[in-house]
């Protein structure tokens, strides 16, 4: 695997197959926590962290436990178990060693357990033939792409606070419209690089 191919994998996972805007995963947090820019950044950082760690652990479980024993049908249950355990563990470690980071993450860390993009990355990695390095690049790229999308959304929604929005469009309806238009823009990335 050349360095160039890794860059392509990164760009592909972050932009072309953006988790929110192309694969439509993790939408709940995308709409729920995109009201303020700083909380969106916090959520994004937490997602990158958990996504990378859980993808690596899932990769190892898939490769050394599920495939040898032909238990691939268990991947959903086991990956959820891995993610839930890992988020708990992470919370304890952060609380112990970095109370300020713990305060900053707040409720977002536990919320990540139910973020489907985390499970999505684990399942996509399991279904592919990535090695450890590729898994790492893919997970970090996906997480950063997710962060990019939610930060853009938060920026737009903060600006909307000052806009005169018609009554029928206020709130979630306008958020969904914005998400759809952003998604259309990201659809333009498809086909920029063949086979990505």
């Amino acid at each position: 695997m050349s360095f160039g191919a890794l860059i392509l994998l990164f760009v592909g996972s972050a932009l072309i197959n953006n988790f929110i805007l192309s694969r439509f995963l993790g939408i709940c947090a995308f709409l729920g926590v995109s009201r303020r820019l700083d909380t969106a950044l916090g959520m994004g950082a937490a997602v990158v962290f958990v996504m990378t760690c859980s993808a690596l652990i899932s990769w190892a479980i898939q490769r050394y436990l599920l495939t040898p024993f032909k238990l691939q049908f268990l991947e959903y249950v086991i990956f959820i178990l891995v993610i839930a355990t890992f988020v708990q563990l992470l919370e304890m470690v952060i609380k112990k060693y970095s109370p300020s980071l713990y305060e900053a993450f707040g409720i977002y860390l536990p919320l990540i357990t139910t973020n489907c993009s985390i499970l999505g990355v684990a399942l996509l990695v399991a279904g592919s033939s990535y090695n450890l390095l590729q898994t790492l690049v893919f997970a970090v790229g996906s997480g950063l792409g997710w962060t990019l999308a939610i930060v853009m959304m938060a920026g737009l929604r903060e600006e909307l606070d000052f806009a005169d929005v018609p009554l029928s469009l206020q709130g979630s309806s306008l958020s969904l419209l914005i998400a759809a238009i952003m998604s259309l823009a990201f659809a333009g990335f498809a086909g920029v690089v063949p086979n990505l």
Binding site: I61, L65, L66, F69, L71, L74, V77, I78, L81, V82, T85, Q88, L89, M92, V93
Partner: peptide, 16 residues
């Protein structure tokens, strides 16, 4: 497999 993993994770969390 599920049982072993669940117990392993539970022990991990207890230890943590």
């Amino acid at each position: 497999a599920m049982g072993v993993l669940a117990i392993a994770f539970a022990l991990l969390l207890v230890w943590a």
